[in-house]
């Protein structure tokens, strides 16, 4: 390491937490300032899946997301003991099987499974789905647990965490702005994209890895969030990417779409209990690609879109690398303030 800096980070969502942890562990002195009094109260992070699915995302994202995301999984694996690295599955109802062909064509590294192979991975899906795509090196996690873990690690690493502080902490060599959509005041092209999700408790369902159900109108993903206190499995059902910037309640229409798609995946979801319905608004630039924007010591890390958990550790690593060497990934770095 070339030198030790005093660094202030704004925003303690998943991006800010990873930034703080990464820099503190590299020996920098870090203050993490979060506007809300309660951790994560204002963040969109708790509304994440959170699938770490860089290969599947390539169906509708650029190759850079896969490239950075695969590194993201590596970093998570090294840091977070509760990461589930069991791969992920993609299925389609028989009449939409052509969507599966398209998905396979648009992505890399997916293995086509027959019913026998699917049976070994997720036996409960076999009666309804005779084939699937399997992405073996993808992973997932429970975002709430992961955020709490990160906050704890951040404190253990010596970061000064200031809750209820919206101002920029004084006296820092660098300020790193990880405020997400709140940075819209300075980043005019940033927009919010609403994501809706439902959390259910389903003791009868034993699906172990994320499953994407392809449908022309209601694509759905299901993420196992592990067991609750009573030993029952929790699942997150989500999907919707809506070009809207409010985080108001889920509409009945969205809920119907999500719940009926879950029911198609496994009718046993009919007996699941709904724990919560909610929406978060993710920050995105017009090309839906993440950016590091530097302007004389003030650095924005933003536009992680629906890849917050996947990309936050990589963006943190890139920023650390930039501070220490002046070099960073050319596809995410923007030095010219005019381009933000």
């Amino acid at each position: 390491m070339t030198s030790q800096y005093k660094i202030a980070i704004r925003g303690a969502g998943v991006a800010g937490l990873w930034q703080a942890l990464t820099l503190a562990r590299r020996g920098h002195r870090v203050i993490l300032a979060e506007r809300s009094e309660d951790p994560f109260a204002d963040a969109c992070s708790p509304y994440a899946g959170a699938m770490l699915a860089p290969r599947c995302e390539e169906e509708s994202a650029e190759p850079i997301i896969r490239e950075l995301g695969l590194r993201g999984i590596e970093i998570w694996k090294a840091v977070y003991p509760d990461l589930s690295a069991a791969g992920s599955l993609v299925v389609a109802p028989a009449r939409d099987r052509k969507l599966l062909d398209r998905f396979e064509r648009m992505t890399q590294g997916g293995a086509r499974l027959g019913a026998d192979q699917l049976e070994e991975l997720e036996p409960s899906l076999v009666p309804r789905f005779g084939t699937a795509l399997f992405y073996a090196d993808e992973a997932h996690l429970n975002p709430g647990a992961a955020l709490s873990f990160l906050l704890n690690e951040v404190r253990n690493a010596g970061v000064v965490v200031q809750l209820g502080v919206g101002d920029i902490p004084a006296g820092a060599d660098f300020v790193i702005d990880c405020r997400g959509l709140a940075a819209q005041d300075m980043l005019p092209t940033l927009r919010g994209v609403r994501g809706e999700r439902i959390v259910v408790r389903a003791p009868e369902i034993a699906i172990e890895r994320p499953v994407r159900l392809l449908h022309p109108r209601f694509p759905l993903y299901l993420v196992p969030w592990g067991e609750d206190d009573t030993g029952a499995n929790q699942f997150m059902i989500g999907a919707t990417s809506i070009e809207r910037e409010d985080d108001g309640p889920v509409t009945l229409r969205s809920a119907l779409e999500l719940l009926s798609a879950a029911y198609v995946l496994d009718p046993a979801f009919g007996e699941a209990e709904i724990l919560s319905l909610g929406a978060g608004v993710r920050p995105a630039f017009p090309d839906n690609r993440p950016r590091i924007i530097e302007s004389s010591g003030y650095i924005y890390v933003n536009g992680l879109y629906r890849h917050g958990f996947l990309l936050a550790p990589v963006m943190a690593e890139q920023v650390a690398h930039y501070l220490e060497t002046g070099v960073t990934h050319p596809e995410v770095f923007v030095a010219d303030f005019g381009q933000r």
Partner: peptide, 16 residues
């Protein structure tokens, strides 16, 4: 129906 809020607040997509 799908993409809009009922108000014009925060209409990043509309602007685009």
């Amino acid at each position: 129906r799908r993409e809009s809020a009922r108000t014009k607040t925060g209409q990043g997509f509309w602007a685009l």
